[in-house]
Nucleic acid binder design. Sequence first.
DNA 1: AGTGAAAAACAATGGCG
DNA 2: CGCCATTGTTTTTCACT
Lengths: 154, 154
Amino acid sequence: MSGAFDGFDLKILRVLQENAALTNQEIGEKIGLSASQLSRRRQKLEQDGVIRRYRASLDPDALGLGVTAYVGVTLGAHSRENARRFREMVTTMPEVQEAHTLTGDVDYMLKVVVKDLKALGRIINDELLPHDAVQNVRSSIAMETLKDDNLLPL
Amino acid sequence: MSGAFDGFDLKILRVLQENAALTNQEIGEKIGLSASQLSRRRQKLEQDGVIRRYRASLDPDALGLGVTAYVGVTLGAHSRENARRFREMVTTMPEVQEAHTLTGDVDYMLKVVVKDLKALGRIINDELLPHDAVQNVRSSIAMETLKDDNLLPL
DNA sequence: AGTGAAAAACAATGGCG
DNA sequence: CGCCATTGTTTTTCACT
């Protein structure tokens, strides 16, 4: 485990999570480091797993994905097998962007992105509710998204 | 302005949102297109805003960010000015990864990532609750994250 | 719209302060 | 550990089908 990042590493990470299209040269100019050093430090951060991957962030609206919803799911029978199968299902559903187990009265919280409300209904009624383990589903639709950058606070 | 994507564009987007580190050559081999075409189509997708940006996805745990929470916020006085100032605040808070207005009994839902529970408490008690517009705050902590890829279903 | 090859830009590596 | 110079890749552009 590579414990400590120094200030440079942190700056590199800050820049890269906001804009991974910048060249090592450009990042180096921003933070006062040479391009070759950027290259080396980047490789290390990638190998250490601090940088997990690079991805293109797409515009949902441009792709006809107009509805974001948070779906709270309560399981009925809390058997280990039921829970396992539920988790298996949600992790493989492409419309589910995030899935967490939460403290409080709801067992799972899903973030779901779909084309329209009809598609949301289909997910809830045809996929979630029929599942043996699921007792209750409650969805809230995002009317407006103020922020959705998923940038970690560094 | 961005009319229709053909099958190639869709394939490019699918690959790029999963792994933007692949070269045009590699993507081209996957989907049956030359590197030069990849370059041209990518530039168009970027200009059209379908690809919003490229980012590095970082490991929260490796950066000491152990706590993800969903914070539901209910506003008290629903004046236009109050709402505006609240939105201004949450959009500029680095710990807030996502912020949406929701249907249902909660006005805003925030996804918050912080170092520990103490930091979460500080956000809630020192930033959110003291705000004039805020009437009530209710947070749920993510005990386990099953999925967090934020990949759009294409 | 598509390809392939040349030119330009970039990342990665080895040597040196 | 840091920077500079060289080498190998990758992207981009151009000529052409």
